[in-house]
Nucleic acid binder design. Structure first.
Lengths: 150, 150
DNA sequence: TTTGAAAAATGCGAAGC
DNA sequence: GCTTCGCATTTTTCAAA
């Protein structure tokens, strides 16, 4: 699994603007053949460099309450708690972090009741959680998936 | 811009598994015509319900340091700081939150030097920031974009 | 809004450079 | 590893129910 060269990065640069761009279109933009684009995209997909997904607006599909939750865990329990959190549909992101909280998660809920249930029932019953710090999103300013500078 | 019905949600349910699924394939799965799928997808795109994107693995494209940063701002300065943060390529996500921090952002960097520069130079020079709380990601457990329960 | 059918574009596999 | 060339699939367009 080698490094990405300039053409690979250029392909990603175009796809990050619009995941629906065709091989043909990208080929023209980069002045190489369609087959080259296709081969490289398939290689990057196989190597897990990126994947084609859709990004839904949570509000538009009825998930009106978004929260970021910091968790402090008992030493040695972090991994197991992370795996438990993993299994919740509501949880979009979980990571272990250095800093104030051992775990940070992002989760989407239909309404406040569901958030309260998640925190007071589900989190509350997990062994090894020492403290929970809930932040509720009031306004979103940016949510970008374009990491590549052109 | 009406509400989504069961077919719309079913379409999103299939697309969230794989953003490359064709109209034809989804049509067969849902026992409706290809045109129906196409019409509905285009309506949802127009309404901003979702978009086709690619999700890159930050590590695989050389962004090896990921951080979540909580910021406390001077009253009334929050909006303007959020907009400034917005303009940084490194910043993937910014939101205003209730709770311990007024703003929370997620950012990706090539290395620790770039993170340190962002915090100690860029953030440090912004007017109205009272405190900054940096958490560095040690391990990622989940990063899902499938919000719809089937 | 959904369907069906024909034209245009895109994607795919194989062969050669 | 890149390109070209047929063939299959998908997308687009549009008329009609």
């Amino acid at each position: 699994m080698g490094k990405l060269d300039d053409i690979d990065l250029a392909i990603l640069g175009f796809l990050q603007e619009n995941g629906k761009r065709s091989y043909t279109e990208i080929a023209k933009l980069l002045h190489v053949s369609e087959g080259t684009i296709r081969t490289r995209i398939n290689r990057m997909l196989k190597d897990g460099v990126f994947e084609f997904i859709i990004h839904m607006d949570p509000n538009k599909i009825g998930l009106n309450v978004q929260a970021i939750i910091g968790i402090t865990t008992k030493l040695g329990q972090q991994e197991q708690i992370a795996r438990t959190l993993n299994s919740f549909q509501e949880v979009r992101f979980v990571g272990a972090f250095s800093g104030q909280h051992d775990l940070i998660l992002q989760a989407y809920f239909k309404n406040n009741d569901e958030l309260v249930h998640f925190v007071n029932k589900e989190l509350a019953k997990m062994e090894g959680i020492l403290s929970v710090d809930v932040s509720i999103e009031l306004k979103q300013y940016k949510d970008s998936f374009s990491y590549i500078v052109k």
